[in-house]
Design a protein around this nucleic acid. Structure first.
Length: 419
RNA sequence: GGUGGCGUGUCCGAGUGGCCUAAGGAGCACGCCUCGAAAGCGUGUGAGGGUUAACGCCCUCCGUGGGUUCAAAUCCCACCGCCACCGCCA
């Protein structure tokens, strides 16, 4: 959530942020209206409550000395009724206020490019693109032939958008996971295996129950959620804590579950868009001041991982109209997919500022006052899409697939995947 | 899933309706003492919110949420978590 003080002091800043996101600036005025009402009710409630406490002490004193307390108690009764009534007014006002606050998306970073979905700003391009669109065999064809991927049986067992990785495909996932873990941990990220089933507050706190709610699996019997990314568990890990030293950096492995509602008919072939996959995710808690630099650090590690895999990719700056609710700014790396003849997202690094930390109550010890931390996340490896990229970009003339040298130590030293 | 026990501040721990405005201890910080340190003595020591130009003042927080009462850490209900044992299970 946004700092209420910013909304009071500089509402235009928030209105402008909402506007460039393509969201409703009027929420700001709703908030201000409810906030004023709440503060008024709150002050009145506090005043009466103070009177009630004083009275309570007087009643106690009267009972001890044997004096008549009946008039005091009568006054107390009237006060109690009034407090009940005022308490309800106050609580209603607070609920309305918080509702408006929760509905507001994070402030965008000043440098984030203005624009709507699809208007990506390309920051850089790396590696050599393989021609082939249409003529180039796709990952399903290659993977099936080499016995590393089985989408037909995935569909038989679990439905569309499920798959089996088999043989060297299964080992390839483990190699990628270990490789990514190793690179990230060499940059100070602590490896974590995180729960992928979480309680509602974790989902709410990371901002996934707002506009993204339709893509989340919910287990109604237990009121728990299957996470779409380990970001959820990693962020909530330190909820309700006051941290000592920051930054804290984690690299977490977890399965990820996505309903993919609203994407019917998109990427229906293969494992580009699936309901379940495994991912290695980086997550940092920093001071608010250090967040922009940390964002670059995370992006740098993502690039190091892709460079090591010898994949052609580009880095894009996501326009404000396409940012998630929690993100101030987002950089994606998009890898070249020869069979599609286009770049597709494989990593995504977001700076969430203190937006998630406010919801999850994650602070750090600081001088005059403790302050909320900034949270940042970025993909180290999203397994299926990287497998697509490797199968297609490293396809050799003999039909086998080359294994980039950086990955070989994690892949039994093998230099290629062969049938 | 069953039975029993437990949940108080940074930690330990007292507290069974009203000076709890939470005892006491430990830890920590500062001061005194000391050549210096330890010990001892003294003072201070949480989080959030409202209000104020500021000093300050007020409110909330004893696992969470309800309830009873003029008044709740304390009584009642529900839930959550932890521990032990039993059952089941990888």
């Amino acid at each position: 959530m946004i700092d209420p003080q910013i909304l009071r002091d500089d509402p235009d800043l928030v209105r402008e942020s909402q506007r460039v996101r393509g969201e409703d600036p009027a929420l700001v005025d709703q908030f201000l209206q409810y906030d004023t009402a709440w503060r008024k009710a709150n002050a009145e409630f506090d005043r009466l409550r103070s009177e009630q406490k004083t009275l309570g002490r007087e009643v106690g004193e009267a009972k001890r000395t044997g004096a008549d307390a009946s008039s005091l108690m009568a006054r107390g009764e009237a006060l109690a009724d009034e407090l009940t009534r005022l308490g309800e007014v106050r609580d209603q006002a607070l609920i309305a206020r918080d509702g408006a606050l929760l509905a507001l998306s994070n402030l965008v970073e000043p440098d984030a490019p203005r624009g709507v979905e699809g208007e990506v700003k390309v920051l850089s391009e790396h590696g050599t693109v393989v021609a082939g669109h249409g003529a180039h065999p796709d990952h399903v064809e290659i993977g099936t032939r080499l016995g590393v991927l089985d989408v037909e049986r995935g569909a038989k067992v679990s439905g569309s958008r499920f798959y089996f990785l088999t043989g060297q495909g299964a080992l390839l996932e483990l190699a990628l996971v270990n490789y990514a873990m190793q690179v990230a941990s060499s940059h100070g990220f602590t490896p974590v295996i995180a729960p992928s089933l979480v309680r509602p507050f974790a989902m709410e706190g990371t901002g996934f129950l707002g506009q993204a709610a339709e893509n989340v699996y919910h287990l109604a019997d237990d009121d728990m959620y299957l996470v779409g990314t380990s970001e959820v568990a990693l962020a909530a890990m330190h909820s309700d804590e006051i941290l000592g030293e920051v930054p804290l950096r984690y690299v977490g492995f977890s399965p990820c579950f996505r309903r993919e509602a609203g994407s019917h008919g998109k990427d229906t072939r293969g494992i580009m868009r699936v309901h379940w996959f495994d991912k290695v995710e980086m997550f940092s808690f920093t001071s608010v001041d250090a967040a922009v630099a940390e964002h670059q650090k995370i992006l740098g590690i993502e690039r190091e991982i892709l460079d090591g895999l010898e994949l052609p990719y580009r880095v894009v700056d996501i326009p404000t109209g396409d940012l998630g609710a929690s993100a101030r700014r987002k950089f994606d790396c998009e890898v070249w997919v020869p069979s599609l003849g286009e770049y597709r997202e494989v990593t995504s690094a977001s700076n969430c500022g203190d937006f998630q930390a406010r919801r999850l109550k994650i602070r750090r010890a600081a001088k005059p006052d403790n302050e909320f931390v900034a949270t940042l996340n970025g993909t180290a490896i999203a397994v299926p899409r990287i497998i697509i990229a490797i199968l297609e970009n490293h396809l050799q003339a003999d039909g086998n697939v080359g294994v980039p040298s950086a990955l070989r130590p994690f892949f039994g030293g093998r230099s290629q995947i062969a049938a």
